[in-house]
Write a protein that binds this DNA or RNA. Structure first.
Length: 301
DNA sequence: CTTTAGACGAAGTATTA
DNA sequence: TAATAATTCGTCTAAAG
């Protein structure tokens, strides 16, 4: 699915991944898109602002998420069809319905236009790959259609959409990183995250320690074997169910610590704690826990 | 002097009543 | 809203290297 290619021109990281589905080469360390749009299966979000009128409906939610009664593209009959209805009252009723639908959908589109420019702004600051930006736009659209933005700031829902999109695409971005770019506070954003998680779609993978490994190990300049070892440790740890409810950063850091000792590529707890954004204490607790529950022996010192 | 281990309470979070 | 349970953090002490 994902294959290693070369070096990142931006940060020099070696963790480049080719995402066939999106046709992109992404640096997992800094999130930079090196090559993009080799193939494009995505929805046409990019030209949203330039396009007008009916043609926008092309950019509706992908069919997998679309419910026939909730999409923007739902019409109350065509104008031509209405004239074939003989009853005058019935006909007027349909016209009224069309009118309402027009009002609702233009309101949504106005909101969307505003939101998407904010989305573009934030995601470019964060150097997020386009696939994530598109995902965020999809999520936001769903949120608007379900009226989740009412009573909330557009910015907070946009930020939440971006955060969730990052998680879906397994690109490690902490909520704080998004908070610094967004124009709202953390509380509002996490509220919106919860709301979307609950109301909109649910296919958001839990944050996994494995996703952090590339970024962290690049910062630590670890050997390939060490990285691989750490990945294996996390895999078995997850199988043993000892990772649930724990900070992924702590798990990832602990796995890297163990791996670095096992592969004679040693780093101190302090070094690892720094890049993992957890404290040495947490690294210690997690790694003790892992050693115990996975039965890892510590001969080579 | 540096790294690691472990204990304690404080602080923020999620769940429940 | 308040109480609870689990988790991480900061700090301190101590041992090992």
């Amino acid at each position: 699915m994902e294959t290693l290619i070369k070096k990142c021109p931006e940060c020099g990281g070696i963790n480049l991944f080719f995402n066939k589905e999106k046709g992109e080469v992404i640096c997992k360390d800094c999130g930079l898109v090196i090559e993009e749009k080799m193939i494009d299966f995505g929805q046409e979000w990019r030209d949203f602002d330039e396009e007008g009128g009916e043609s926008r409906r092309r950019a509706g939610a992908p069919s997998t998420f679309t419910k026939h009664d909730q999409g923007l593209g739902t019409d109350v009959g065509k104008v031509g069809d209405l004239y074939s209805i003989s009853d005058k009252k019935e006909r007027n009723k349909f016209f009224r319905l069309r009118k309402w639908q027009y009002r609702i959908s233009t309101a949504i589109e106005r909101n969307l236009k505003l939101a998407l420019s904010e989305l573009k702004r934030v995601s470019s600051y964060l150097k997020l790959p386009e696939s994530v930006e598109e995902e965020a736009a999809r999520i936001y659209t769903q949120a608007v259609q379900r009226g989740l933005v009412r009573g909330r700031s557009i910015e907070s829902v946009v930020a939440a959409s971006i955060y969730l999109a990052c998680r879906i695409h397994r690109i490690p971005r902490r909520l704080d990183e998004i908070v610094t770019e967004a124009k709202t506070n953390r509380k509002q954003i996490s509220q919106a995250v919860r709301l979307i998680l609950f109301q909109v779609k649910v296919d958001v993978p839990l944050p996994s320690a494995n996703d952090l490994i590339p970024r962290l190990s690049a910062d630590l300049a670890l050997k390939g074997r060490t990285v691989k070892r750490a990945t294996e440790i996390i895999r078995t740890a997850r199988k043993e169910r000892v990772t649930i409810g724990k900070d992924p950063g702590g798990i990832a850091g602990a796995a890297l610590y163990i791996a670095s000792i096992l592969e004679e590529d040693r780093r101190t707890q302090r070094e690892i704690a720094e890049v993992s954004r957890v404290t040495e204490v947490t690294i210690r607790n997690r790694y003790k826990e892992l050693v115990r529950s996975l039965g890892i022996s510590f001969e080579p010192k």
